[in-house]
Amino acid sequence: MWQFVARSLDASTIFTLAGLGELVDQRSGILNVGLEGIMLFGATLGFIATKVTGNYLIGFAVALLIGALLGLMHGFFSITLGVDQVVSGMGIWILGFGLTTYIGNPYTGPLGLERIPTVGGVSPFFYLGVVLVLLSWFILFKTSFGLQLRSVGENPSVAEVSGINVKRTRYLAVTFGGMMSGFAGAVYALYYNPVWNYNFLMGWGFISLALVFFSMWNPLILFGGSLLFGLLWQLSLNPQLFLPGLMSRYLWRTVPFVITILVLVLISTKWFRTRWGAAKPEALGVPYVK
């Protein structure tokens, strides 16, 4: 039982890390729908780097770097060139999915290294995730930098007038967002399930994206959502633990997605929007032109 809970916490870590990056990204007004692509890149290149060098640290460093670069690329397209953010995000997702399929294929199979040690049965990344959640909550809501970041996402022209460099703030946010997605991918491929396979993420990135919408753009709620979905995901993988024989194991895999859709619908209802909708960054997805 504890093993199941620990495994759920490990799964939730991946949602937390990817979602946190996207949350900061969106707080600055930039939507990146391509985080699954960045995660695939971080996971694949991190996996290859670790497999080749036998060193976990190098793998994580590579994942952070590629994540940051892809975040920067999204920034370049959507901030500097003013391309539709959805188009750019889709581009990054398909680039990630397409290229990593080719790059990773020769490395198909298990990592074959000693597992990363756990702390109390849970990966050290879980604790790191908790620290990062608290830290980003503090920075977003209790520091002047956080206020600047949020104001850029709410009303960039007003922020600019009050002396904030909108472009630089947004670039910072997308780069951070990319790094976190790359990191989340690496945690998946180097710790959670250290086996490379064709298009192995199967929706982790998209669920993380949905979690950001659920979170009211608040890291603490995001963390709660991640815990719930980590549990749900683990349950869908091991239904025999609780409800044996109810559905085939394949149908169980649809459950996290069905529940995500139900929650998406709930938060999209008028009732919910009028009550809680104000949290959404006003300028989300809108290119800023001086």
Binding site: F97, G98, I103
Partner: peptide, 11 residues
């Protein structure tokens, strides 16, 4: 390697 057509898709 496998996946050349997917890589092209991405590029």
């Amino acid at each position: 390697g496998f996946g050349l057509d997917y890589a092209l898709l991405g590029v």
